[in-house]
Write a protein that binds this DNA or RNA. Structure first.
Lengths: 129, 129
DNA sequence: GAATACAGGTCTCTCTTAGAGACCGTATTA
DNA sequence: TAATACGGTCTCTAAGAGAGACCTGTATTC
C-alpha cells in the first residue's frame, strides 16, 4: 500500500508533513499504551512511590511499570524524584504538562463511559452474527 | 504485583469494578491502536472504499487495514456496506457513534498539537542526559 | 550476628502480536 | 492474452509484552 491518492493525509503531506513521524500518533501511542493512562490517573490524586503504584495497578509487572514511567518522564508528563533516605525512596508525580493532559484524557474517559452500552451492544450483535 | 492497597483503582474495585475488563481501557486500546484513529480521520470526510483507504494511509498493510476496520465495525464506530456490483465494491463510513467519538479524539489531537514543542523539548533534554 | 523484609529496580525467557508481502477469484480493459 | 483493479486472506518473521527470578543495600527482628 504505497500509492497515494487525494486524501486528507495527502494534503498534510503537501504541507510538508511526514505521517510516519506524526505528532498526533506520538501522543496517541501513549494513550493507548495500556498502562500509561492508568498510571496518570493514579498520579492525578497525588505523588506516589514506585511500589505503591505497583500495588495500585494489580496486573502490571515491574518491568512494564518501570518502562511506562520512563516514557512518561521522557515526555515530561511525570517527574521522578529520588530521596536519599536510608532505603532510598522514589516518588513520581504529574508535571504541569501531565496535568494538562488529563483534560483530553478525561474527555475520552467520559465518552467511553457514556457510550459503553452502545459499544457492548454492537459487539454482541457483531459476534453473534 | 498482586497486592492491593488504598488507591483509586481499589475504590473502583470496591464498586464492583474489574480493572482487567475496564471499559475505559477497551476504548483507549482503540485510540492507541496505531491505525484506527487515522482511519477514523480519513472517514470523517465521508465514506471511503477499501482500497481508497489503503492508498490514503501510505504505510498500512492490507492485513492491518482489514483488521482495524473489523474492530471498528464490531464496536459500531464504522459501518460496512457491500454493493453487489460487477467487481463487488465495499464502502466504509462513520456511524453516529463514530462521529460522536471524533469529539474527544479531536480534543486529544488539539492537545498534541499544542503541547508538541514541550514534549519534544523534554525528550531532547532527557535523551541528552 | 544471622535471617528476614523492604526499597527500586534490572535481566532473561517465552509467547503473543504487528507488519510485510504473496496469493486468490472475478471482471474489465487494452 | 495479458495487465489491472476490486476486496480481501494466508503465511512468515521480527518485535514487543508480560512473568517472574534476581540484585544491591539498609533496617529490623531474633
Amino acid at each position: 500500500m504505497r500509492d497515494i491518492s487525494h486524501s486528507r493525509i495527502k494534503e498534510w503531506k503537501a504541507m510538508g508533513f511526514d505521517p510516519s513521524r506524526c505528532p498526533v500518533r506520538q501522543v496517541l501511542d501513549h494513550v493507548g499504551a495500556k498502562w500509561t493512562s492508568l498510571i496518570l490517573l493514579e498520579l492525578e490524586a497525588g505523588p506516589q512511590r514506585f511500589n505503591a503504584l505497583g500495588r495500585a495497578l494489580p496486573d502490571i509487572s515491574k518491568r512494564m511499570l518501570t518502562q511506562s514511567l520512563r516514557d512518561l518522564e521522557r515526555d515530561g508528563l511525570v517527574a521522578r524524584t529520588v530521596f536519599d533516605t536510608k532505603p532510598p525512596s522514589v516518588t513520581y508525580e504529574l508535571t504541569a504538562l501531565g496535568h494538562s493532559f488529563m483534560v483530553p484524557l478525561h474527555g475520552m474517559i467520559a465518552w467511553s463511559a457514556a457510550k459503553l452500552p452502545d459499544i457492548q451492544h454492537s459487539r454482541a450483535a457483531f459476534d453473534q452474527a
